[in-house]
Design a protein around this nucleic acid. Sequence first.
RNA 1: GGACCGGUAGUUCAAUCGGUUAGAGCGCCAGCCUGUCACGCUGGAAGUUGCGAGUUCGAGUCUCGUCCGGUCCGCCA
Length: 590
Amino acid sequence: MRSHTCGQLRAEDEGRRVRLAGWVNRVRNLGGFCFLDLRDRYGMIQVVFEPERQELMDAAGRLHMESVILVEGVVRRRPGSMANQELATGEIELLAESCKLLSRADVLPFTLEAEDTAGEDLRLKHRYLDLRRPTKSRYLLLRHRMAQAVRRTLDGLEFLEVETPILMKSTPEGARDYLVPSRIHAGCFYALPQSPQTYKQLLMVSGFDRYFQIVKCFRDEDLRSDRQPEFTQIDIELSFGDELDVQDTAEAVMAGLFREIKGEELPLPLPRLTWREAMDRFGSDKPDLRIPLEIRELGALAASSNFGVFQQALEQGGVLRGLVFPGLAEEFSRKKIDALQDYARHLGGQGVVVVRWTAEGLSSQIGKFTGEEWLKSAVAAAGATQGDLLVLAAGEYRLVCKLLGNMRLRLAKEHGLLDASAHKLLWVTDFPMFEYDDEEQRWMAAHHPFTQPNAEQLAAGVPESDLLSRGYDLVMDGQEIAGGSVRIHEREMQARVFRMLGISDEEAQEKFGFLLEAFRYGTPPHAGCAFGFDRLVMIFGGTENIRDVIAFPKTNRAASPMDGCPGRVDARQLDELHLKIVGDKPGGDA
RNA sequence: GGACCGGUAGUUCAAUCGGUUAGAGCGCCAGCCUGUCACGCUGGAAGUUGCGAGUUCGAGUCUCGUCCGGUCCGCCA
C-alpha cells in the first residue's frame, strides 16, 4: 500500500514518486495552499496541496485530525528558506497528486500533544490514542530494545529461555494470589504465578542448568506509581554456582543494556554493601548512592540531651541518629519544618527533630530541653557546619532508618542534592533471613522460603532474629531492580526452614510436596535472581510512572477504564465454575 | 484498611466573601485567506459544575455521604 514510511524520506529522494500512509497530524489550510502533516510510528512529513488540483486541495482542507489517509505524489525540496529544522524530513515535502481517505476520524476525546495535558483517566480509557503520541510510544520502543538486548546477552551466555505455566498451584507464603476457578475440578482453583520460582528450581533439577525467561507475574496487592498487578520479570536461574555466578550474570545483563541502550560501558564489578551497612549509612535497603549524604550514629548523646524521647529511645534498646543537609538551614522556614514533621509522622513514630544552624546560631524545637551546649555537641558529632540543617530521629532501629532514609531522599530531590544524570548501581547482600510479622505473630521469610540461610550462623545456633540469608538485591538509583538468592537444594534444610516459618510438615507436604520430592532425586546446587523489567525500563526511560512503560496498564484500583475489566460474568459461567456470588454489591458492570 | 490532592463545555483551566445570564485558550461548525509548520482573521455552536442528600432567600463555591482518578502509609515472600 505504501512505498515508504513518514519518517524515511530525505533531500536525496527529491523527484521520487512515493505513496505514504498515516495519520493526519495537523492541517494548515491557507486558502490558496493547504499543508498537512502526515504521521506514523517512524516520523512525520509535510504534504502540500496546490491550487492546480483545486478539488483535491479542498478535500484535504476538510480532513479531520487523526484520520487515516493514503497520499501519492512526488518528493520535492522545499523552496528557499522554508525548511523545518525541527523535522527529520524538514528539508523536503510531498506534493500530493492524489489522496485517499482510508478512515475518517471523529473528533478526539482529547488532543494529542507532546505533554500529558489530558487527564490520566481519559488517556487510559483511550489508551490506543495516548500511544499515538511519540512521547508515549517511545517507552514501548525502548522496552522492546531492552528486551532484545537482554535476550542477546543471556543467549550468548548459554541461558535457555523456557516458558513456565501461567495456571499454577496457590502457595501460602508471599503476596495474595490471583485465583482462577476450575470448571473441571469443582471447588478448586489455579493461581496465577507471583513468580515462576518453583518451576525454575524444578528446571534445575531437570538439568537445564542455565534458564531465563521474560515473564508476566501477578500479585493481588494494592498498587503504587511503580507497581502494577501484572508485571514483567527477567527471571534467571543457574546450577553449580553461587551468588557470585548469579551476580556476574546479572552484571552482564546490565552491561549489555548500558552498551546497547546508552552506548556506555558499565564499570564492573559493581560495589557491594551488606544490608546492615546500607541501613546504617543510608537508612534504606535500596540506597540511592547518587545522594552524597550519610546518616551518623549519635546514640552517645542521648543520655545528656535532657530530652525524654531521646533518652527513652536508648533505654529501650533503640538508637539516636542524625543526617546533615549541607546549606539548607536558611531555606527551612517554620512552615517548611512543619511540612517535614507532617511527612515524618506520616511515616510513623513520633517524627523527627530539626536543628538549624544559621547565621544567628543554633535553633531547634527541642532547644528548651537540651540547651545550646547540647545542640553544639550534636552538630559537631554529626559533622555539620554553619548553614547546615541537621535532622535527628530516635527510636527503634528500623523506624529511625526509615525516617532518616526517607528524609534523605525527599530533601535531596527537593534541593538538588541528587545528580539525576548519573546512574549508581550496587549489590546489597546479607539480608536478614526472617522478619517478624506482628499481625500473624510469626517469623516470615524476608526473601522467600527457598532462600539458603547462612550456614555458619545456622551451625552456631544463632537465633532466628539475627540469622542472615544468602540473598542479594541489585539496586540502581535507589530502586530495587533485581533480587535473588542461593537456593536450598537439600530436602532436610528446606523442611527445617519451613518449620522455622511455622509451616507444619503436613502443610509443607501439601503446598510444596512436589518440590521436596523433586529434591530427593538428585538436585544440583543452584541460585538465581529476577529483575523487575518494568522498573528497569522506567529508569532507562526516565519516568516515575510504571503505566508509561506498559502498553495497557491498570489504574490504582487494578481496573482498566478502556475495556472495563474486571467485569461481571453470566450466571451460566458462574454455574460452570461452581461459583456463587455472595454479598453482591452493584458497582462493577459487565 | 488509612491519609492527602483532584473532578466545571469535546479538552485544559478560570469563576472574588455563598449572589446578575458559569467565562477563556485549544478543538468543533461556517466564512475568508497562495508558503504554512501551534498558520492567521471574522463569526457561531457547545454546560445535569462526577453523583446523591443537607444548610441557605440563594450553592460550582459550605457540610455529609458516595463514585472515579492520582500520590503516599499499611500491604507487596
